[in-house]
């Protein structure tokens, strides 16, 4: 898998918001590759910059700008494209299912018109062909074909989310970015939709960048998981290692694992991580997690750690990297 060309490649990406009284950097020097056909989970709490990263990858930032780095999709630098080129390229190669399906659909247009718009913006096809394709898409997400004539407000939250997913796979893209696609839905519907997503993904062979703050969900769904903290990627690891007690992890990841309650215990106990992420306006010189870390050492406060292959994962932590080095006597 590693030998392949990545479908999405973020290199040294930093993003700052310009709308407040002073610019605020929310994504810091992120490197991340997504390979064809894989599901890569991106975990982080609100404000960690994960959604911003998704918008950056789609070149959809508003009131924010990429201050460094590059974004390549299928080998092409999307920030070098002209607008019309970008418009044609975007949904065909990479699409995005929005976090708030509630608001992602135009309230005054029928579902059918909104799907047709997607198709017609990229292909030349007759209305009949378009409707036929739209019905296929709806069937794929298990919606009744007559949903075409319905307006968004007539649909339930789950149905709306399915419509958004249908639109996102309309042009058979190579990568679908899913930004918390099940937030706001009840647990049962969440599960059903996730199963459907996985099933469609297996059939259509696209890659998914799955963004969520639900640690357990991502760790079971994704083949690889990237963990984001305060605008930085602190670890990239195989999903399976999150369930392997012997695997090495970033202390933040360890904290997340400990925070998941275990059914096997007599009592479901979850241990939180004390403290808060740093204020992005007053970002520490060293490791952003240092203030909350139980392993913190002096070097952590002086120098920012970098992502390095540590054990079987990429981890950005001085302490874990040192331990690993000692263990193997390097």
């Amino acid at each position: 898998m590693i030998e392949q060309e990545p479908i999405l490649s973020l290199k040294d990406v930093s993003v700052q918001y310009d709308s407040g009284p002073e610019p605020v950097t929310v994504v810091r020097n992120v490197f991340l590759d997504v390979y064809p056909q894989e599901i890569l989970g991106l975990i982080g709490e609100s404000g960690s910059g994960k959604s911003t990263l998704a918008y950056t990858a789609m070149r959809l930032l508003k009131h924010a700008s990429m201050t460094s780095g590059s974004v390549r999709i299928a080998g092409r630098d999307i920030y070098a494209m002209k607008h019309e080129e970008l418009r044609q390229f975007r949904w065909a190669e990479v699409s995005m299912a929005f976090q708030t399906a509630m608001n992602a659909l135009n309230p005054v247009m029928t579902v059918g018109e909104q799907i047709l718009d997607t198709l017609k913006s990229h292909q030349t096809l007759t209305r009949e062909e378009g409707i036929e394709r739209a019905q296929e898409l709806l069937q794929l997400v298990r919606l009744n074909p007559d949903t075409l004539q319905r307006y968004p407000h007539e649909l339930s939250g789950g149905m709306r989310q399915r419509v958004v997913i249908a639109i996102s796979i309309a042009l058979s893209p190579k990568l679908v970015i899913m930004d918390e696609p099940t937030t706001g839905l009840d647990v049962v519907i969440q599960r059903t939709i996730l199963d459907e997503i996985v099933e469609i993904q297996r059939r259509q062979h696209f890659a998914i960048l799955f963004i969520s703050h639900d640690f357990q969900l991502v760790s079971t769904l994704a083949q690889r998981v990237a963990i984001m903290y305060a605008g930085k990627i602190v670890e990239v690891t195989a999903g399976a290692t999150l369930h392997d007690p012997t695997a090495l992890h970033h202390p933040y990841t360890e904290g997340l694992i400990r925070a998941v309650p275990r059914l096997s215990d007599d009592q479901a106990t979850a241990i939180g991580i004390p403290g808060n992420p740093p204020d992005p306006r007053d970002f520490p010189k060293g490791c952003a997690y240092a203030d909350r870390c139980s392993l913190v050492q002096r070097v952590c406060r002086e120098q920012p750690p970098e992502l390095r292959m540590t054990g079987s994962s990429l981890i950005a932590c001085h302490v874990v990297q040192q331990r690993e080095a000692k263990q193997y006597g390097i």
């Binding site: 975007r90 065909a92 992602a104 309230p107 718009d117 997607t118 913006s121 990229h122 958004v164 309309a170």
Partner: peptide, 13 residues
């Protein structure tokens, strides 16, 4: 609104 960004993303002219 999100639906504008979504429409822009999906390539609406």
């Amino acid at each position: 609104e999100d639906y504008i960004t979504f429409a822009e993303a999906k390539g609406v002219k």
